[in-house]
Amino acid sequence: MSDQELQHIITKSRDAKHGGVGVLSTSEKLAAALVLNRPDWLAEMNYTLAEAIERVGPVWLTLIPKAARELEYEDERAAGKA
């Protein structure tokens, strides 16, 4: 696990949150859907939760909770809560 991979997931998830997933790879789209808790995106891509977890792989899977917390913290800071 590297900070570079974590930052990659955060950046792609942030991009997806603010502009959609159009230019992301399938794995990036699935990771963003998991980070952002968007099961509707998984359904739109015809992936189950289990399939998405398998597709992103064990390394990215361990980074998803950290990425989700970072984006949540960013939202709190932007709202003046942190």
Rank of each mutant, 00 (worst) to 15 (best):
I64K: 04
E54R: 15
Q4T: 13
G22F: 08
V59E: 10
E44G: 10
L63V: 06
K81G: 06
Y73G: 09
G22I: 13
G22R: 08
L63A: 04
V35Y: 00
A16T: 08
L30P: 03
A31Q: 05
D3W: 11
A78L: 15
H8L: 14
L42F: 06
A78M: 11
W60P: 01
E74N: 07
G22P: 00
P65R: 08
V56P: 00
A32D: 02
H8I: 14
A16Q: 01
E70R: 15
E74G: 05
I64Y: 01
E72M: 09
K81R: 15
I10P: 02
T26L: 15
M45F: 12
L42C: 09
A43Q: 14
P58K: 15
A16L: 06
I9W: 04
A32R: 01
Q7S: 09
P39R: 10
G20D: 12
L34R: 02
L36R: 05
Q7I: 12
A31Y: 01
R38N: 07
A50D: 11
V35G: 02
G57L: 08
L6Q: 05
H8W: 09
N37P: 04
D40S: 14
H18R: 10
A68E: 00
D40H: 11
Q7T: 10
K81H: 06
A78D: 11
T11C: 01
M45D: 08
Y47M: 13
I64G: 01
E76P: 04
T26R: 10
L49W: 12
L30G: 05
R77H: 03
S25M: 14
I9M: 03
G22T: 15
E28V: 02
E44R: 14
Y47G: 07
E70G: 04
Q7K: 12
M1S: 08
L24D: 05
N46M: 07
S2N: 13
V21H: 00
R14A: 06
K29Q: 13
G57W: 09
T26K: 07
I53D: 02
P65V: 12
A32Y: 04
A78G: 08
L49D: 14
S13Q: 04
L34C: 00
A31W: 02
G57C: 11
G20P: 03
A50L: 12
P58T: 15
I53H: 01
N46R: 07
G22N: 15
K12Y: 07
N46C: 02
I9N: 03
D75M: 13
E44D: 12
L6K: 05
H18S: 10
E74H: 07
L30K: 05
D75E: 14
L36K: 05
G80H: 04
L24R: 04
A31F: 00
V23F: 13
M45T: 09
N37H: 09
E28T: 07
L71S: 03
I53C: 02
R55E: 15
S2P: 05
A67E: 01
D40K: 13
V21N: 00
Q4V: 13
T11I: 08
L42W: 03
M1L: 14
A33W: 00
M45I: 11
E44P: 00
T62C: 06
A67P: 02
I64A: 03
G80S: 07
A52C: 07
A79Y: 06
M45Y: 11
E70I: 13
A78K: 08
W60H: 00
T26P: 00
